[in-house]
Computed example of a mutant assay.
Amino acid sequence: MEFDKNDPMFLRQIIMEHYSEPQHKGLTKKTTAHSIHQASESCIDDIHLELIVTDEKIMMARFDGVGCAISTASTDIMAQELEGKTIHEGLAIIDNYLAMVFDKPYDETKLNELIAFINIAKQPNRIKCATIGICGFQILLLNLLNTNNKK
């Protein structure tokens, strides 16, 4: 699907769809899930993230909690992007997204719906919102990678 990054209404629509009807909200609370809690000290964002990984493949990415439209939508879209990927592929997706958010070189062809956050770099007060869930997923994946490398 082609995304028009120059159409603010289209970008806003992606965000609002994932905010009002997140597809990856709700934790499984399975004992095999890897989880982390992320909370902002400056706003409402307070979420729990969960990954289920089998043989270094992300089988399920979930989240739950309270968040603004930006944090909820970015976390939901990232969960969507991570499922079915390997740990390394997931980390590459996250690195590319964070590069965009922090106004560094990135590959927009690999962002899919994450392109909706293309203008976040111009809104420094929203960067934390757009990264709180993503950084949680990143921490979980890096921990899994480190654990697997020690085996």
Rank of each mutant, 00 (worst) to 15 (best):
L142A: 02
P8M: 09
R62M: 05
K104C: 08
I139L: 05
P22V: 05
K104A: 15
N112C: 11
I70W: 00
M78F: 04
G84E: 09
G136W: 01
Y19V: 12
L111A: 11
Y106D: 01
N125W: 05
G26E: 08
E2T: 10
N143P: 03
L144R: 05
S40A: 13
E17P: 02
R12H: 07
T32K: 08
I118G: 09
R126A: 13
I14A: 09
K104H: 13
H48Y: 08
A39D: 02
I115H: 10
H37I: 15
C43W: 01
E17Y: 01
H18S: 10
Q23Y: 02
C129G: 03
I58C: 07
N112H: 14
Y19T: 12
Q38E: 13
A33F: 08
A39I: 09
Q123D: 14
L140S: 01
S71R: 03
S42R: 14
G84T: 11
L98K: 12
V53S: 07
R126E: 06
G67F: 00
T86N: 08
Y106G: 02
I118Q: 14
A121D: 08
E81S: 14
I44D: 02
I58N: 03
E89K: 13
P105C: 09
D76W: 00
M60G: 01
F102I: 04
S40N: 09
E17A: 09
I52W: 03
I70N: 00
G26S: 08
D4Y: 04
I44R: 13
L141P: 03
K57S: 07
E81N: 12
K150S: 14
M60N: 11
Q80T: 11
E113Y: 12
Q123W: 04
R12W: 05
R12Y: 09
Q123H: 13
N6R: 06
L111H: 01
I118M: 08
P124I: 08
L114E: 10
N125A: 15
L142W: 02
K30H: 06
V53F: 03
T147N: 07
F117I: 13
E41S: 12
I14E: 04
A61Y: 00
I94M: 09
C129F: 08
G136L: 11
N148F: 02
C43G: 06
Q13V: 01
G26W: 11
I120H: 00
I58G: 01
F3P: 06
F102N: 15
I52Y: 07
I47S: 00
H24M: 07
